[in-house]
Design a protein around this nucleic acid. Sequence first.
DNA 1: TATTGTTATACTCTATAACTATA
DNA 2: TATAGTTATAGAGTATAACAATA
Lengths: 164, 164
Amino acid sequence: MGRDAGGGKGGRRADEEGCARQILEVVPQAMWLLRREMRRAAGAGLSVPQLRVLAFLRRSPGASLSAVAEFCGVADASASAMVDRLVRRGLAAREPDPSERRRVRLTLTPGGSSLFESARAHTGRSLAARLRGLGEEDLAVLADGLAVLAGVLSAAPGTGSEEP
Amino acid sequence: MGRDAGGGKGGRRADEEGCARQILEVVPQAMWLLRREMRRAAGAGLSVPQLRVLAFLRRSPGASLSAVAEFCGVADASASAMVDRLVRRGLAAREPDPSERRRVRLTLTPGGSSLFESARAHTGRSLAARLRGLGEEDLAVLADGLAVLAGVLSAAPGTGSEEP
DNA sequence: TATTGTTATACTCTATAACTATA
DNA sequence: TATAGTTATAGAGTATAACAATA
């Protein structure tokens, strides 16, 4: 019974325009919360993009720079700069790939790995604390909504206004 | 087929931890989409924070700098810099409040107003286009989920780990 | 003195363009 | 030549700290 199209919770039928407006309003706000929590996280001093890079490297050790760039959706040069900061901080390691010497193999250092774990745990905990006020019901609604959003994001990059 | 719309709504019971993880994963991705769309928006060349400031000033003409800072969740100095860029671009106007000369009254210029309109329209349209693939059902799920998220964001700033 | 804003400084994120070193 | 990364440069966002002007 959560919300169910046309009945509860939402009340009015949702339209694309309205959803778009909601996204435009809610997402930046959520982002700011994340950023703030991350900054506070156990003195980690990690930015959201940095956390994402670390997460990616943990999941894909030995990834190339362009893989990072693609995952992050940024230009190679931007990714290079981000990785460089992580390397300088001793959180990531960068070494040439022996079989393809143009490539670099990126990995987390032990320090990077543990910082990532604790930063994510902290952020997760403080988000979870905020969510604690929600009932079982609303929590499910939120989870389902986020799942739909995730689906939209990974779907065809430009079903809409694409000018090639 | 985002998630399973059939039957259990979410299937598994949602827990705070899981939702937190979802937020941490989905929100930055959504943010990057917004940013990209905004950058493309009709040559507007507006950033997401800039759009938010413009939106705020349209809704609250004559607002003070600290009001902008609070709305954006940034330090006064940061807001001052943002506003300054908008003023230099001729999108916003800044004049001292006659009755309280420490304060500034911020407003949109006609140019800022119309740029805001068109940028938001463009971004809204391209988001809506992406959403077009969703069924009535998923759209409602998304809308409700976003509404819950918005509630969480505006709720008690720190039900969790708050160190004043 | 307390409040409102600005300046100064420093970092991160990001883009584009030009360059290096492979292949 | 084409590909993988880096460097150079520029501008936005953000924070903190120091300052100015007004109350």
